[in-house]
Amino acid sequence: MLQNLIITGVGGQGNVLASQILGRAAVLSGLKVTIGETFGLSQRGGSVMSHVRISDKRNYGPLIPPNMADVILGLEPLETLRIIQEYGSETCSYIVNSRPIYPLNSIAGEMEYPDPEWIKMVVSSSGGKLYWLDATRHAIALGGPIMLNMIMLGALCSLPGFPVSISQIQAILARVFPETKLEANHRALATGSEMIAGNAN
């Protein structure tokens, strides 16, 4: 078994933490995990991508070869669109948060942020199954935009056949977060899970 996952988003969305929690949960259940983290100049606002490779056999390299992602977890629509051509495939599944974070050049009107509905069309036409989630709105309701990554992790672990379960994530959360923050994070995981169930038609 080899599961190639890419988590893509914008600096500040909790991408790196989500990949670490997922990775630690997989290691705890005896799997081999390799995570390649790419983050650039800025602490906030730049493109951030993590490659997560989970296998029951060996540790693979830190970068997924072209067009071999099984799942792309897009925390932001434009960042999802950015990597489809390089990593997507006919069979890749997509879980995408629909809420844009506008780049400065698009806010300034120097480039147009593509219509999210068009991005949705492109992603769903590319071949794989698409889950298009209004996750930021739910995150705000659960306490703030920072809850987004846990909602998305909850959704990811509810994909049929995904090798890491929500309860395994919860076991790691208990080690990472103080007890006061656990309940909110558990609720976020459950919210993500429900969103996948609601999309499963």
Partner: peptide, 28 residues
């Protein structure tokens, strides 16, 4: 030939332009 090219051709028909870069900037 690495198999990726077929898929890439298909995506190129949907996304003809390169996806615009995310400009570097100071945090809020």
């Amino acid at each position: 030939v690495w198999k990726a090219e077929i898929f890439r051709e298909k995506i190129r028909t949907f996304i003809p332009q390169p996806v615009p870069p995310r400009e570097f900037g100071f945090c809020a």
